[in-house]
Simulated assay, not measured.
Amino acid sequence: MTTRAVAGTPRLLLRLEGLVLLAAATWVFSRTSQPWWLYAALFFVPDVSFAAYAAGSKFGSVAYNALHSTIGPTILGLAGLALGSLPLLGVAAIWAAHVGFDRALGYGLKYATGFSDTHLGRIGLKSAGA
């Protein structure tokens, strides 16, 4: 099955957007006075969602997308701002930085057809133009 993916200049812009998100979120984290070991320790935590693929591609894609969308870190960041909690804001920034990192590398949100099928194109050994 072929999945639709963004291509050309829009794909490049989305990847650049990811790079900007990574840089901006890292800068926000630097302003929270949280320790940098926390950034290093939590940066790849959203990738635990890979384990959900053991239950199938559909469930795996839902879990992956839930942790690799900007919705979660935005809500957590707003909660941190509303509560005046620098630790919450710091964790939100780390989460957003991870999302930006993945997007900059071309890892998009997943389709239920398989881990390699993303909105930014196929990833992995059989990818084209990654």
Score class of each variant (00 low, 15 high):
Met1Asn: 11
Thr2Ile: 14
Thr2His: 10
Thr2Ala: 13
Thr3Gly: 08
Arg4Phe: 14
Ala5Pro: 06
Val6Asp: 02
Val6Met: 08
Ala7Phe: 11
Gly8Glu: 09
Gly8His: 11
Thr9Tyr: 15
Leu13Ile: 05
Arg15Tyr: 08
Arg15His: 11
Leu16Glu: 04
Glu17Ala: 15
Leu19Ala: 14
Leu19Glu: 02
Val20Gln: 06
Leu21Phe: 07
Ala23Arg: 00
Ala24Cys: 05
Ala24Gly: 08
Ala25Ile: 05
Trp27Leu: 13
Phe29Leu: 07
Phe29Lys: 04
Ser30Ala: 15
Arg31Cys: 10
Ser33Phe: 11
Pro35Gln: 13
Trp36Lys: 00
Ala40Pro: 05
Ala40Tyr: 10
Phe44Gly: 13
Val45Ala: 14
Val45Phe: 14
Val45Leu: 15
Pro46Tyr: 10
Pro46Gly: 12
Pro46His: 08
Val48Glu: 07
Val48Arg: 06
Phe50Pro: 10
Tyr53Pro: 03
Tyr53Met: 06
Ala54Ile: 10
Ala54Phe: 15
Gly56Ser: 09
Gly56Lys: 07
Gly56Asn: 09
Gly56Cys: 07
Ser57Ala: 15
Lys58Asn: 10
Phe59Arg: 13
Gly60Arg: 02
Ser61Trp: 04
Ser61Thr: 06
Ser61Leu: 10
Val62Gln: 13
Val62Tyr: 15
Tyr64Pro: 00
Tyr64Asp: 01
Tyr64Cys: 01
Asn65Val: 12
Asn65Ala: 12
Ala66Asp: 00
Leu67Ile: 09
Leu67His: 10
His68Phe: 07
His68Lys: 04
Ser69Cys: 13
Thr70Gly: 11
Thr70Pro: 00
Ile71Glu: 01
Ile71His: 03
Ile71Asn: 01
Ile71Arg: 02
Gly72Ile: 10
Pro73Met: 03
Pro73Phe: 05
Thr74Lys: 08
Thr74Asn: 08
Ile75Gln: 04
Leu76Asn: 11
Gly77Asp: 12
Leu78Asp: 12
Ala79Pro: 02
Gly80Lys: 03
Gly80Gln: 01
Leu81Pro: 10
Leu81Ser: 12
Leu81Lys: 09
Leu83Glu: 07
Leu83Ile: 11
Gly84Ser: 05
Leu86Val: 00
Leu89Asn: 00
Gly90His: 09
Gly90Val: 02
Gly90Cys: 05
Val91Ser: 02
Ala92Cys: 07
Ala93Phe: 04
Trp95His: 15
Ala96His: 05
Ala97Asp: 00
Val99Gly: 04
Val99Ile: 12
Val99Tyr: 12
Val99Cys: 06
Gly100Trp: 03
Gly100Thr: 02
Asp102Tyr: 04
Asp102Leu: 02
Arg103Lys: 14
Arg103Met: 05
Arg103Asp: 05
Leu105Pro: 05
Gly106Glu: 06
Tyr107Arg: 05
Gly108His: 09
Leu109Lys: 09
Leu109Ile: 10
Lys110Cys: 08
Tyr111Ile: 03
Ala112Lys: 14
Thr113Ala: 15
Thr113Phe: 13
Thr113Gly: 14
Gly114Cys: 05
Phe115Asn: 03
Ser116His: 13
Ser116Phe: 12
Asp117Pro: 03
Asp117Cys: 07
Asp117Ile: 03
Thr118Cys: 08
Thr118Asn: 04
Thr118Gly: 10
His119Gly: 04
Leu120Ser: 01
Leu120Val: 06
Gly121Trp: 01
Gly121Pro: 02
Arg122Leu: 07
Ile123Tyr: 06
Gly124Lys: 07
Lys126Glu: 12
Ser127Ala: 14
Ala128Phe: 11
Ala128Lys: 14
Gly129Tyr: 03
